[in-house]
Design a protein around this nucleic acid. Structure first.
Length: 658
RNA sequence: GCCGGCGUAGCUCAGCAGGUAGAGCGGCCGCCUCGUAAGCGGCAGGUCGUCGGUUCGAGUCCGACCGCCGGCUCCA
């Protein structure tokens, strides 16, 4: 029995195994206006098993299965999820337009994706921006023509013949990879036919609001040994407003670009002469960074962490022991020290372990939490470097926790609590949590004992359940050395960033022969839990810059207040105000230049996103006040200086936004 | 690393039938002494990413290198 959920919320029970969705709809006696609007469905299987996806999108050609115990949510073009159908169709329209304009182009794949769709082509010459415009115009014609999408199924042999005639080598490769017994289907609209699983919108004219966004190289099958194809990205929305909103949001993201803001606000610089992926932190950027570190450090100390400082280099032998040379050598920088091989550290673990091992440890001092703002260097491939988000110098807010197996769950709980506290204070309130565990099909590839794994996975899972945190369980996503929790946080404009990670490590305690003396007087093996909250400070600050669009909350702002004397004769009083602020611990500057009007200097402060602007003129000098303007353009009027200083001190201490 | 695009003053960019460099912003100076997002005027600032080639002559054409930007497992 299939349950049909109608767009108006009604539910119908249908039993028509083997029938096509489009035909079934005709027999339901629905309001014809409604029936005409239905373009497909989201299918949820109520019985899992036999490789059936838990959720899939289907079009009107979909055949209800023999075992039709499922729920079909019928979709109109406006329904959430319907975009997966029509974007897929737009990908075909894109390919159709390319084929018309560039008949030699070979088709690869063209799926719908998160915010749009793409199609990969093998073409003799790469597409230019002008080509994109031409292609887009051709697509408009195809949309205008409103060709219906027709599905037909053929035998494997027939499909092979068709694709050989069409000379589509990539499609042939796809055909060959289809598993035995899988239906081979084509979709046809107008003159264009494409091997395709579907689903599709009923016709090319359904969605008129689309835009081609970018063209980029992409390897066939994502494999760098295979041919480089040309990928065209586009997006599409049923409603024009939604397309415009999406394009605006892209512009908004571009405006927040941390590389631009970093330069404009003088937070950091990257110079060709220094080297790619290496960051120069400017004074204002360091203020933000230090404040962040100070906040984080305080919270760590409250929870019993101890800070350490370790070298930037270590002998080859150390990295041999840790296994980094075996598994990570490509990313490590080698240094010659008096004829001996050293490596710049890509991680802090071996050093923290050496600190642990610097004397005999008792169970009484566990859990031992060693933390470090350790700058590590990794030789990231040049092509992946990106502003602060992907660099070669990485300052981790790193810690290694040495604990007994019994303590593992409490330790994890504390880390998770700490992470949410710190991220929450910075305005990250929406998370996606991933629990990565072993692949039950392939247990042999993991280090450590079954007992340790079971225990660690239970600890991680136990904490998430205890705190009632929703999470996704990722089978087989664990590292070979241990299971982990990853936290992705959503920023102010809705993008997700992977930040916190908590990982068990069953390899390093063995390799370094870490031990502690337990109550029984014997040596036992500790667990090592590797964790970082913000991850890399470079990357996190890049994220924060974009999250706040450069307008940092008061406590993080590089300049918290700027004093603005109106004319020459107010500078003296302005300097008094400045000194009072600085004595009170407020980061303040005075902005005065005989070349610049007050308006111009206010504009400067506004562009630098300074939270408080304090205008001083005759009235203020006489009355011992300052006229307060906020960067939100709110005018608070004159305030007694003493009162304002107290307010600022309080707000900074509270880590208030403004 | 690979594919494509790009690389002119601190920033954003113009200049390209190859004849030897320009604007705005910013900086500095002067006038103005100014009440909440740009007052007016002047000056300085460039081995046109680097190296090599073609040419009487190269920012402009060719090649190599360096760097930046977009992308490279969201599977018909």
């Amino acid at each position: 029995m299939a349950i049909f959920k109608l767009p108006d919320g009604r539910r119908l029970e249908v039993h028509k195994p083997g029938a096509r969705l489009g035909d079934v709809l005709k027999e339901l006696g629905l309001d014809p206006r409604l029936a005409k609007r239905i373009i497909g469905a989201r299918v949820r299987s109520s019985s899992t098993g036999q490789g059936r996806a838990p959720e899939q999108y289907v079009d009107l050609y979909y055949r209800l299965p023999e075992d039709d115990s499922l729920e079909l949510e019928l979709l109109t073009p406006e329904s959430p999820g319907a975009e997966w159908l029509y974007r897929h169709s737009l990908a075909h329209v894109l390919a159709q337009a390319v084929k018309r304009l560039f008949p030699k182009a070979k088709l690869a794949i063209g799926p719908p994706i998160e915010d749009g769709f793409y199609y990969d082509f093998d073409v003799p010459r790469p597409f230019t921006p002008e080509d994109l415009q031409k292609i887009e115009r051709e697509m408009k014609k195809i949309v205008e023509a409103n060709y219906p999408f027709e599905r037909f199924e053929v035998s494997r042999e027939e499909a092979r013949k068709m694709l050989e005639e069409a000379d589509e080598p990539y499609k042939l490769e796809i055909l060959d990879e289809l598993t035995e017994g899988e239906t081979v289907s084509f979709y046809k609209d107008g003159e264009f036919v494409d091997l395709c699983r579907g689903p599709h919108a009923p016709s090319t004219g359904l969605v008129k609001h689309f835009k081609l966004l970018d063209v980029a190289g992409a390897y066939w099958r994502g494999d760098e040994r295979r041919p480089m194809l040309q990928r065209i990205y586009g997006t599409a929305f049923y409603r024009k407003d939604d397309l415009e909103r999406f394009l605006k949001q892209r512009e908004e993201a571009a405006k927040r670009d941390h590389r631009r803001l970093g330069r404009e606000l003088e937070l950091f610089a990257m110079e060709d002469a220094v080297g790619p992926g290496l960051v120069l932190w400017l004074p204002k950027g360091v203020v933000v960074r230090r404040e962040l570190e100070r906040f984080e450090m305080e919270e760590h100390l409250k929870r019993g962490y101890q800070f350490v400082v370790t070298p930037h280099l270590g002998k080859a032998q150390l990295w041999e022991t840790s296994g980094h040379l075996a598994y990570y050598r490509e990313n490590m920088f080698k240094v010659d020290v008096e004829g001996q091989e050293y490596f710049v550290k890509p991680m802090n673990c071996p050093f923290h372990i050496m600190i642990y091992k610097s004397r005999t440890r008792s169970y009484r001092e566990l859990p031992l939490k060693l933390a470090e703002y350790g700058t590590v260097y990794r030789n990231e491939r040049s092509g992946v470097l990106h502003g602060l988000l992907r660099v070669r110098m990485i300052t981790q807010d790193d810690a290694h926790i040495f604990c007994t197996p019994d303590q593992a769950e409490d330790v994890v709980a504390e880390v998770v609590e700490l992470a949410f506290y710190l991220l929450g204070a910075l305005g990250f309130r929406d998370y996606e949590i991933y629990l990565s565990v072993r692949d039950p099909q392939n247990l042999s590839k993991y280090a450590g004992t079954d007992e340790d794994w079971a225990r660690a996975e239970a600890a991680l899972e136990g904490v998430l359940n205890e705190k009632e945190l929703p999470y996704k369980r990722m089978e087989g996503e664990a590292q070979f050395y241990g299971p982990k929790i990853d936290v992705h946080a959503r920023d102010a404009i809705g993008r997700l960033w992977q930040l916190t990670t908590v990982q068990f490590d069953f390899v390093l305690p063995e390799r370094f022969d870490c031990t502690y003396i337990a109550e029984d007087g014997r040596e036992h093996r500790p667990y090592i839990i590797h964790r970082a909250i913000f991850g890399s400070l470079e990357r996190f600050l890049g994220i924060l810059i974009e999250h706040y669009a450069g307008a940092f909350p008061l406590w993080l702002a590089p300049v918290q207040a700027v004093v603005l004397p109106i004319a020459d004769r107010h500078v003296e009083y302005g300097l008094n105000v400045l000194n009072r602020l600085r004595e009170a611990g407020v980061r303040a500057e005075l902005s005065y230049s005989p070349h610049k009007t007050l308006s111009a200097r206010i504009r400067d402060a506004q562009l630098k996103k300074v939270p408080y602007m304090l205008v001083v003129g005759d009235r203020e000098a006489k009355e011992g006040t300052v006229a307060v303007r906020l960067r939100t353009e709110e005018d608070l009027g004159p305030r007694p200086l003493d009162e304002l200083i107290e307010t600022l001190k309080r707000k900074i201490a509270e880590r208030a936004e403004l």
